[in-house]
Amino acid sequence: MALHGWLLFVAAVVVLCGTPGPNMLHVLTRSVALGWRGSLPAMAGCLTALVAVLAASAAGLAAVLTAVPGLFDVLRYAGAAYLAWLGFRAWTTRSAPVDIGSTELPRARLFRGGFLVGISNPKLLLFATAFLPQFVDRTQPQAPQFALLVATFALVECLWYGAYALGGTSLARHLTRPGVRRWFDRATGGIFIGFGTALLAARA
């Protein structure tokens, strides 16, 4: 892989990862409730899901979705339902945003929540399948190139997680008033429901 190709990939990924989406919103809301350190397990869960999807795409597993058309729809409906459920919880629960019921949740539960948010968008699999190969030199061994691309994507994603987590920690200072916190919960809940609706309306 040529250096200029990798730099172009980095530039594209910086923009893609920084764009607000379910993962970033989840990290933001976790850091609001738990602080940036407390949100680390959720970040790890989101990142694990992301790397798993990217690795599956690099391995060519998206072909399975093509061979079994109904499978993608099942995943799409499940992902949309989960995101909508997160939005409903955020809208109806005053104590904390999104799916948080306590500020002392076990790390395993935080990790699981982050992983489910990250894995709930099956279109990421198809996106990664179309995106990653654009930066691979077919004349060179492909496995090391895919490994480099996935590692780069994961690193950039981590940096953005940190930025959103710090932003959530700062935002938490302004959410001590119940009325403001309720507005935040409902706003994030509405956004999650919007993500779920958009996923449900999308077509492979």
Score class of each variant (00 low, 15 high):
residue 183 W to A: 09
residue 72 F to Q: 09
residue 202 A to S: 10
residue 50 L to S: 10
residue 29 T to W: 00
residue 200 L to P: 12
residue 197 T to E: 02
residue 199 L to A: 07
residue 149 L to Q: 06
residue 26 H to M: 06
residue 176 T to N: 10
residue 188 T to E: 02
residue 49 A to L: 13
residue 61 L to E: 14
residue 63 A to Q: 10
residue 144 P to G: 08
residue 105 L to N: 09
residue 66 T to N: 12
residue 130 A to I: 08
residue 21 G to I: 03
residue 191 I to T: 13
residue 30 R to Y: 02
residue 82 Y to C: 08
residue 173 R to W: 06
residue 158 C to S: 07
residue 152 T to E: 05
residue 141 P to W: 11
residue 175 L to N: 09
residue 164 Y to Q: 03
residue 186 R to S: 09
residue 146 F to A: 00
residue 89 R to E: 11
residue 105 L to K: 12
residue 200 L to T: 04
residue 69 P to A: 08
residue 46 C to K: 10
residue 19 T to K: 01
residue 163 A to F: 06
residue 59 A to D: 08
residue 37 R to I: 13
residue 145 Q to K: 11
residue 9 F to Q: 00
residue 148 L to V: 12
residue 88 F to W: 10
residue 115 F to R: 05
residue 61 L to N: 10
residue 163 A to L: 10
residue 82 Y to M: 05
residue 149 L to W: 11
residue 161 Y to M: 05
residue 170 S to A: 06
residue 107 R to K: 12
residue 177 R to Q: 13
residue 39 S to I: 02
residue 107 R to M: 08
residue 99 D to C: 07
residue 174 H to R: 08
residue 54 L to I: 11
residue 78 A to E: 11
residue 33 A to T: 05
residue 65 L to A: 08
residue 15 V to A: 04
residue 11 A to T: 07
residue 127 F to A: 15
residue 31 S to I: 05
residue 65 L to D: 12
residue 89 R to G: 11
residue 198 A to E: 10
residue 189 G to N: 12
residue 69 P to Q: 09
residue 104 E to D: 14
residue 64 V to E: 14
residue 97 P to Y: 03
residue 133 P to L: 09
residue 104 E to H: 14
residue 6 W to S: 00
residue 204 A to T: 01
residue 30 R to G: 06
residue 118 G to E: 11
residue 193 I to T: 13
residue 62 A to M: 06
residue 18 G to K: 01
residue 186 R to M: 13
residue 149 L to G: 03
residue 202 A to D: 08
residue 81 A to T: 05
residue 116 L to M: 15
residue 76 R to H: 09
residue 41 P to N: 04
residue 187 A to E: 04
residue 100 I to A: 13
residue 171 L to G: 06
residue 130 A to L: 13
residue 88 F to P: 01
residue 61 L to P: 10
residue 158 C to R: 06
residue 3 L to H: 01
residue 171 L to E: 02
residue 166 L to W: 04
residue 133 P to Q: 12
residue 51 V to C: 14
residue 46 C to H: 08
residue 61 L to C: 13
residue 129 T to K: 13
residue 105 L to E: 13
residue 21 G to D: 08
residue 78 A to G: 12
residue 9 F to K: 00
residue 194 G to F: 14
residue 163 A to R: 09
residue 67 A to C: 07
residue 34 L to S: 02
residue 168 G to A: 04
residue 12 A to H: 03
residue 153 F to L: 06
residue 78 A to P: 15
residue 193 I to Y: 11
residue 36 W to L: 04
residue 12 A to R: 02
residue 146 F to V: 02
residue 122 P to G: 15
residue 113 G to P: 02
residue 6 W to P: 07
residue 26 H to G: 07
residue 36 W to V: 04
residue 59 A to L: 14
residue 41 P to V: 00
residue 80 A to W: 07
residue 165 A to M: 01
residue 16 L to C: 01
residue 36 W to F: 02
residue 46 C to L: 12
residue 8 L to I: 07
residue 55 A to E: 09
residue 92 T to G: 10
residue 138 R to Y: 09
residue 6 W to L: 00
residue 186 R to W: 14
residue 137 D to M: 14
residue 10 V to K: 03
residue 110 L to T: 01
residue 31 S to Y: 01
residue 143 A to C: 03
residue 140 Q to R: 15
residue 167 G to C: 03
residue 91 W to Y: 07
residue 173 R to L: 05
residue 98 V to C: 11
residue 65 L to F: 15
residue 191 I to V: 15
residue 196 G to V: 05
residue 22 P to D: 08
residue 129 T to E: 11
residue 173 R to N: 06
residue 146 F to D: 04
residue 34 L to C: 02
residue 52 A to H: 11
